[in-house]
Nucleic acid binder design. Structure first.
Lengths: 118, 118
DNA sequence: GACTTGTTCTAGTTGCAATAGAACAAGTAG
DNA sequence: CTACTTGTTCTATTGCAACTAGAACAAGTC
């Protein structure tokens, strides 16, 4: 899979990594049983710190997308097959509505986080 | 209007303030022509710094929700009457879809920001 | 002219992300 | 059993953005 991350972006690198994995899963580029690169390996190839990659992996584990085992690495779970199109559709609709209402990304983010915490 | 902010939240205070203003506008608690409290005044009552409040006001100005003039303060524009229900609906749908797919708030935020930047 | 209120500037504090390196633990493979 | 792989944990440091603080300034109001 492809790892597109933006070190200049305002999102934490580890969160970007986790999101990329979800995107890959949604595209069926990441299937149940697949293995992600070893943390040190991925860190090397992306020129990131191992801890940053591991934090992303741990978040993915919390989200149930992968399982982590020492010696074996990060294995993609069955949940990767989840249909993400509802999320994608809702996302597009939201962006559209926000643009029409002149809502900034920052404001929208606050609204989203508030909605998620309820 | 009511200013609900969470100093412990991971969203910047100024962004929270701006979002609150949008929410108030959506609820029709903030109408075109209304005046927001003077920055120093609001900062005092919320126990925040003036600069934090002003940053929120400046963002609201960038979003077109208010106009800023020295001596007069922050006046709500006609845009406050914009129908926000499409945003609200899309927001609810997104949160719903994200929960079903076990997407964390952090991951979802990255996806949203990426979608907004495109 | 006095007052209000946003604008600009400098400066210090704090918390989090990210980096760096090392030691450790649990699993894999020969 | 041994060597290797790979995640886990720990300590420490750096950089940056948000926030705070105080002061002077500018443009408008009354």
């Amino acid at each position: 899979m492809l790892w597109r991350i933006d070190p200049a972006g305002d999102e934490p690198l580890y969160a970007q990594l986790a999101a990329q994995a979800h995107i890959a899963a949604a595209r069926n580029e990441l299937r149940p049983g697949d293995r992600l690169p070893a943390a040190r390996e991925l860190a090397d190839s992306l020129d990131l710190n191992v801890h940053t990659v591991l934090k992303a992996y741990q978040q993915l584990r919390d989200e149930g997308l992968i399982e982590l085992r020492r010696g074996r690495g990060a294995v993609v779970t069955a949940r990767a097959a989840t249909d993400m199109s509802p999320v994608q559709k809702a996302l597009v609709a939201l962006v559209d509505a926000a643009r029409s209402a002149n809502i900034s990304t920052e404001t929208l983010t606050v609204l989203l986080k508030e909605a998620m915490s309820r």
